[in-house]
Each structure stands twice: as structure tokens, then as C-alpha cells.
Design a protein around this nucleic acid. Structure first.
Length: 463
DNA sequence: TGGGGTTAT
DNA sequence: ATAACCC
């Protein structure tokens, strides 16, 4: 930790220095950005059956009853009472109802409540560290390396050697308090407990947490004790955790396609992936994927916790059995759009790109294949996006119908099963008051850039 | 099988 | 614009 020493007198002015540690002059050789990387401490948090929890908060009558959240004909999640009766995630509603007729079903097709609660969770975690990365609506990674470093220093100043782990230790491994890596992770477990306590007391949510030295391991370990518990992984048990995975598809980052290709190579287990000849793997999957997943198979993951910030895109979609006329399409698009314009108002930013995505039904089975067309939004429409949503509805519908016609020849029969409208390339609205500081800051200030990726989409059409 | 999201090519 | 990945 020699690279992490802080200025001696940072105690007094708590205000500004939060983000400072990441924003030091890159020429400062004492900054850990350019020094030896410290042993990272990463927390992964994972809410218990998130949609079901939100529904129970919304309607406390549901507590204690077996509850499923339904989207179309699917149970997308269910509480533990339902799981005890044999209901599983992603089971069909029909099968779930056969298993237990007393099941309570709530419709979860409108994600508004879940999305709002999800961002409250992320915001709460951001109070601990600005480095919070969202994964879906119910998971977050938090890099707490710096906070752990501060607590470790405090501990050393106190001359105290008494620290107790919070929650489970993976494998029940013994803790060595003379090992500073162990002490860091133990401090991490305490912080994870504080996070879970804050989520419970302030948001009334329960969930799991995993603490480890990288994202992969923190995520894998967070699931080892399941509802509402937490686990820390010490380095010596890393291979046991990795070895406990019975199939490569359990590794986050190895998805459906890669799994299939690896199976054709005869690779199914972690051990087989670890020992597979790298040149052959690279030939099959490309250098980038091959090297990344082979490192994952050893439990190595140097990917940073990238702060998510506000979303990069806002989309709304609906699936259905059949949509086969232009009139129906227009009606669906209008619905999706009205919803999105509402969300855009609350977001405050302006989209510069729209996209229409659709899924066609092909009788020849045909698995999920979607196609999309996108285009820039004309600037005169962008400007009107603020409040008078009626003014922008019809021009946007016109644009979306044009995109639709680029994919579908309406002279021919067609059969759609999904429509999605997506706004992306979101930019902060212009701050045109020439005297205000906003005028000078329409582009993010350099120091914020260091860890806030606000400008990544700008390059393409900034000119 | 849903209704979202992200990044890489 | 698509394809892969995540939930």
C-alpha cells in the first residue's frame, strides 16, 4: 500500500476531496493510478428476487404468500415462498400454476417501479464510493479499495489488531490478521455489511453481497449463501471457488454462443478451459475473447469497475403473438413513444438518435433474430423535446414509420412478434446562457472525465 | 421465454 | 447494424 499514502492533513476538509484520489495530476508519480496497483477490494451486491420484493413493498398484503412476477406467459421471478413450492425463474405461468394453484401472480411488464428502485439502490451505494457499476436492475459492483485503505490506516494509527469479519468466509477459511490482504478483505466484509444494512433500513430491501479482489470473484462468491447473506473470498480459496463451478457456462462472461463453440472443442469444465492450448483457443474464438475467458477460468479479471452513471439509452418494447398491419404497427409505436417521451422528460437529457427494432415470426422455427434501423433525430425535433410532448409525437412517429418501411415491405404479408423503440446518444441539453458557468462546461470538465465516462458517445457526431 | 441494458466489431 | 454479453 505504499503507493496509496494520502496527504497528511486531509482530515479537516472532508468536502471536496472525495473524488480527488482519482483525479490527481497524471504526472504525480505518487498517485496509485501510475504506481503499483493495490490489492483491490470489490463488492458485488445482488438483491433477493428483486421484482417480487418491490411488489411486496408496494402491496404488503402479498407478504408471506407465494408470489410470482409475470411478463406475458413467463414467470420472470418469484419470492422464496413460491420457490419452496417448486416454482422456478423463467418457468411458464402455466407450469407454475399447475405446481401450485394458490400462487399469486402480479404483472411485471411495466418496469417503472423496478427501474426507480434500482437507481435508488445504485445511488445509495454511490454514497460509499463513486465507483459503482450496475449490472441489470438488481446487481451492482462497488470498488471500495480506497475506503478500505482509509480504514486500514486508521486501524494502524490506533495500533488495533482486532478486526472481525462480517458474514461468511468462503470455505470457512481461517483468517490471518498478520496478512494485510486478509485484513483488507475483512474490512471489505464490514463495509459490505454496512451497505446491506443501509439498503435494509433506508430502502427496506434485502440482498446478498460478495467481497473479493476482482469483479468475477466477487460476483461468484456473492451467490454462495443465498437469501440475504454475504460472503468474503480470501485468495487462498480462489481455486476452490473456481473449481466448484461444474460447467464453463457458469462463468459470467462466457455466454451461450461461446459455450457452444467450446463444447465443440471438447471443453466443458473449468479445468479443461484452463489447460486448453491458447493458440487453438485463439484460432476458434479470436485473440481477445480467448485470452479474456482463459484468464477468467483461472479467476483472473482485471476489468475495472466502470461507473455506470446515467443510462446510455432509454428503450421501451412490447412483444405479442401477432402484428401484421401497418395500422397496428403505428398504434404500437405510438404507445411505446408516449411512454418514452415521459421518461425522457424526467431524465432531462436529449436523445440524438432513435432506433426501431423488430422481430419477425418465421414458421420455420427461427430463434430470436431481431433487426433494427436507426437514424439521427433532426435538431428541430430535439429542441422541442422539453415539454410540449404532443408537438414531437407525430414527427417522431413519422421517422419511426420510415425506419419500419426500411425493414418491412408492406406490400407483402408480414408477421411481427416484437417492437422496440430506443433513444440513444443522450446529451445534456444545451446551456445557452452565455454568462453562466454552464456555458463553459457543456463539455465535461477534465477532472470529472477521469472516472465519469460522460462523453463516450460524443466522438461520432460531435462535428 | 420478457423487458430491459452494455460493449465490441 | 449486428452480435455477443449481462440481468
Amino acid at each position: 500500500v505504499g503507493c496509496m499514502e494520502l496527504p497528511e492533513e486531509e482530515e479537516e476538509e472532508e468536502e471536496e476531496e472525495e473524488a480527488d484520489w482519482l483525479c490527481r495530476d497524471p504526472g504525480d508519480k505518487g498517485s496509485w493510478l501510475v504506481g503499483t496497483a493495490p490489492h483491490r477490494v470489490i463488492v458485488h451486491t445482488d438483491l433477493d428476487c428483486f421484482y417480487a420484493q418491490v411488489e411486496m413493498l408496494h402491496n404488503p398484503e402479498l407478504r408471506g404468500k407465494p408470489l410470482c412476477v409475470q411478463q406475458k406467459y413467463l414467470v420472470v421471478t418469484c419470492n422464496y415462498e413460491a420457490r419452496e413450492l417448486g416454482v422456478k425463474k423463467l418457468m411458464s405461468v402455466k407450469e407454475a400454476n399447475e405446481k401450485c394453484p394458490q400462487l399469486v401472480l402480479v404483472n411485471g411488464e411495466d418496469l417503472t417501479k423496478y427501474r426507480e428502485m434500482s437507481y435508488k439502490v445504485t445511488a445509495l451505494l454511490e454514497e460509499f464510493s463513486p465507483l459503482v457499476e450496475r449490472l441489470g436492475f438488481d446487481e451492482n459492483f462497488v470498488d471500495i479499495t480506497e475506503m478500505v485503505g482509509k480504514r486500514l490506516e486508521q486501524l494502524q494509527r490506533d495500533g488495533s489488531s482486532k478486526v472481525a469479519v462480517s458474514g461468511h468466509v468462503y470455505n470457512n477459511q481461517a483468517i490471518d490478521l498478520d496478512d494485510t490482504v486478509h485484513v483488507r478483505l475483512v474490512l471489505g466484509s464490514q463495509i459490505a455489511a454496512e451497505m446491506r444494512e443501509a439498503m435494509h433500513s433506508r430502502l427496506a430491501l434485502t440482498g446478498c453481497a460478495g467481497v473479493a479482489s476482482n469483479k468475477l470473484l466477487s460476483k461468484l462468491v456473492s451467490g454462495t449463501f443465498k437469501p440475504n447473506q454475504q460472503t468474503v473470498l480470501l485468495p487462498e480459496s480462489c481455486q476452490d471457488l473456481i473449481g466448484s463451478l461444474d460447467h464453463i457456462k457458469k462463468v459470467p462472461g462466457i455466454g451461450y454462443k461461446t459455450t457452444k463453440r467450446l463444447e465443440l472443442l471438447g471443453v466443458r469444465t473449468m479445468c479443461e478451459l484452463q489447460t486448453f492450448p491458447p493458440p487453438l483457443l485463439e484460432k476458434e474464438l479470436g485473440v481477445s475473447v480467448a485470452q479474456r475467458i482463459q484468464k477468467l477460468s483461472y479467476g483472473e479479471d482485471d476489468s475495472p469497475v466502470t461507473p455506470s452513471g446515467p443510462p446510455q439509452s432509454l428503450s421501451d418494447e412490447d412483444s405479442f403473438k401477432k402484428c401484421s398491419s401497418e395500422g397496428e404497427v403505428k398504434k404500437k409505436i405510438e404507445e411505446l413513444l408516449a411512454n418514452l417521451l415521459d421518461r425522457l422528460d424526467k431524465d432531462g437529457r436529449k436523445p440524438h438518435t432513435v432506433r426501431l427494432t423488430l422481430r419477425q415470426f418465421f414458421p420455420t422455427n427461427k430463434w430470436f433474430t431481431r433487426e433494427s434501423r436507426q437514424c439521427p433525430i433532426p435538431s428541430h425535433i430535439i429542441q422541442k423535446l422539453g415539454t410540449g410532448n404532443c408537438d414531437v409525437m407525430s414527427p417522431l412517429v413519422d421517422i419511426l414509420m420510415k425506419l419500419f418501411h426500411k425493414m418491412i415491405n408492406v406490400e407483402m404479408p408480414f408477421h411481427l412478434t416484437l417492437l422496440n423503440v430506443c433513444f440513444s446518444n443522450l446529451k445534456a441539453p444545451p446551456t445557452h446562457t452565455k454568462g453562466s458557468i454552464g456555458f463553459y462546461l457543456t463539455r465535461v470538465s477534465p477532472s470529472s472525465m477521469v472516472h465519469f465516462r460522460g462523453d463516450r458517445t460524443g466522438a461520432a457526431d460531435v462535428k
